[in-house]
Nucleic acid binder design. Structure first.
Length: 582
DNA sequence: GCCGTTTTCGGCCCGACTGTTTTCAGTCG
């Protein structure tokens, strides 16, 4: 069993314990254990083999035994028994907003309900409202929740959230009663998918800001509206948006608090407690007791100053996942992160020659107008016939056509170049769609998998390693083939592939399509530690997808990457020098 | 279930909102 499967079971154990009414701190121990396992950078089976599970923070005797059993045998008696003792379907019911473990159990005890379908029927029949602690509104909300979970995915792509949030943020900024404002939450941390969109505003007139917010034309329903907080559903796709309004003195601590992550915040609070202080969304206070007394407030005008009071360097929002940022911030070793404006071009893109839009010249003009320096045309290869992939003959024609466009650009004095390339399919055996002779004629070779996703992890890993070992391959494209919120990643051993790329000097793509964002940000720190370079690529099929560069850079920041770690921050001349291999 | 430079027992982050209640439990982030 791999670490993700183990983590999933630990999380399920936590939910099951909650349903059984266990000590909440015991529940939390399992949740913490799941997180710690997911965050591991070395293989879990290796840690188990060497008996080092106890070195993981929060791992005592019980968790060590349980995880070792899961890794070694794939089974855990404790889990099986626990699962058998809780009616199936109750876990799914806890996913409905407003229904936690206590209420789910209450409904089950009173009515014997153990599935979403049965719950829906009971609501419609008016059986829920008479229960103690429930009412007519509970019934309506549960029905809405079930409906919502069917109509909309509960998470959304990052670009969708950004596109929705930015105009609202602009309007909030322009609102006469706004002093400061920002996005917060997972959007500000650039998570690859987000559950909701968070806004924070400081103002002397909170009720006016709240009122303005819930009356925005995009708002389709108001979930909650109070004096300092409102939750609404916005947009066609139904994204939840939360707004908090605080005083300006509270803004820095509120921003830190609502940016999260939850795990990061817990460490921040603990650091405050260790220093005899108390941190909450209202400020950092010289008190051990709960207080909002301005007299006790440690004056912090910005987030930076809060970090300083807790003896930390400023931690950029993208890094706030409790994935090692505290150690680095203490030791002054946080990286200076990449900025999206550092990017000079994209090395994996398509044109009308395969399944993209636009002629070579149109693409060159569009990207040059954006201020980029180069743009690789890497159309699909012949095996991807569904994408009108190029065979040898058409690829040779395209190389010539690109040379002609570049000649025109040079004659016109335009400081921009197209690069010739291919996105070569990796066959099941790891061989590529073109011979080495032809690959050698190209500026850029991206090797990607577009079929046979179902191979076992071992075979899939060997397949990619073989492709990465071809001296003509510059980079591996979208390493796991995942489509966020729709298709699971195919199983690969990231570590082995990264180790190979470190030896061969092969780059790994961070595919900046909002549906991919692949390789996942969680693996970049390991790649970086091995000296493997990243390439942030648009995988553009249309002009406007050049904008994916910004998204890709945001996610690269989340992987701790700097300008130096990313190949396409370099000017063309340096890019050529990087390509020379031993 | 985990943890410990006062502690091997008694803590474990904490505040807002909702819906149901007549003062609060449950849920959420």
């Amino acid at each position: 069993m791999d670490k993700y499967e183990v983590a999933e079971i630990l999380n399920e154990i936590a939910t099951l314990l909650e349903l059984k009414g266990e000590n909440p701190f015991k529940t939390r121990a399992y949740t913490n254990g799941a997180r710690a396992i997911e965050a591991l950078t070395e293989p879990l089976d290796k840690i188990v083999d060497e008996g080092r599970l106890g070195e993981i923070k929060g791992f005592g005797k019980a968790l060590q035994e349980k995880v070792a059993a899961l890794v070694e045998t794939g089974k855990l008696e404790y889990y099986d028994k626990l699962k058998a003792s809780v009616p199936e379907g109750l876990v799914a019911m806890t996913a409905i907003p407003g229904l936690g473990p206590k209420k789910v159990v209450a409904i089950h005890k009173a009515l014997g309900i153990d599935s979403l379908d049965a719950l829906e029927t009971a609501c419609k029949d008016g059986q829920i409202a008479p229960l103690s602690g429930f009412g007519k509104k509970s019934e309506t909300k549960i029905l809405e929740g079930i409906e919502h979970s069917r109509n909309y995915a509960s998470r959304h792509h990052l670009d969708e959230a950004m596109l929705l949030a930015e105009p609202i943020l602009d309007d909030l900024r322009a609102h006469p009663d706004t002093i400061r404002c920002s996005s917060a939450g997972s959007l500000r941390r650039s998570k690859e998918t987000v559950h909701d969109v968070d806004f924070l505003v400081s103002s002397r007139e909170p009720e006016r800001i709240i009122d303005w917010f819930v009356h925005q034309p995009e708002v389709t329903s108001v979930l909650a509206q109070g004096d300092t907080k409102a939750s609404v559903i916005i947009g066609r796709k139904g994204i939840q948006a939360d707004l908090r309004v605080v005083s300006d003195a509270e803004f820095p601590s509120a921003l830190a608090y609502f940016t999260g992550s939850k795990e990061h915040n817990i460490v921040m609070r603990q650091r405050a407690i260790e220093r005899g202080l108390r941190l909450n969304e209202y400020g950092l206070f010289k008190s051990k007791e709960e207080t909002r007394d301005p007299e006790l407030r440690v004056n912090c005008a910005t987030e930076e100053e809060i970090f300083r009071e807790l003896e930390l360097d400023y931690i950029p929002p993208e890094l706030r996942e409790d994935h090692g940022e505290f150690e680095a911030a203490e030791n002054h070793t946080l990286p200076r992160l990449l900025e999206w404006t550092d990017l000079k071009g994209s090395l994996h893109n398509h044109s009308e020659w395969s399944d993209g839009r636009g002629t070579l010249r149109e693409i060159a003009d569009a990207m040059s107008d954006l201020g980029l320096s180069y743009w690789a045309i890497t159309d699909h290869s012949k095996s991807s016939f569904q994408a009108n992939g190029l065979d040898e003959k058409r690829l040779r024609q395209q190389i010539k056509a690109i040379a002609e466009v570049n000649q025109q650009l040079e004659d016109e004095g335009v400081d921009f170049r197209l690069l010739s390339g291919t996105e070569a399919d990796i066959h099941t055996d790891g061989s590529l769609d073109f011979d080495d002779d032809l690959l050698a004629e190209l500026d850029i070779v991206v090797a990607s998998i577009h079929q046979s996703f179902q191979l076992e992890e071992k075979q899939m890993t060997e397949r990619i390693i073989k492709a990465a070992s071809n001296p003509h391959v510059h980079m591996i494209g979208h390493l796991t083939g995942r489509l966020l919120l729709s298709r699971e990643a195919y199983k690969v051993n990231h570590q082995e592939i990264i180790d190979t790329c470190a030896k061969t000097g092969t780059w790994i793509e961070l595919n900046a399509s909002p549906y991919r964002l692949d390789m996942d940000w969680r693996h970049w720190r390991y790649a970086k530690s091995k000296g493997v370079k990243c390439v942030i690529n648009c995988d553009a099929h249309r002009f406007e997808q050049a904008g994916h560069l910004r998204l890709g850079a945001n996610v690269a920041r989340k992987g701790w990457l700097t300008k130096e770690d990313v190949v396409n921050t370099r000017p063309l001349k340096e890019l050529w020098e990087l390509q020379v291999r031993d």
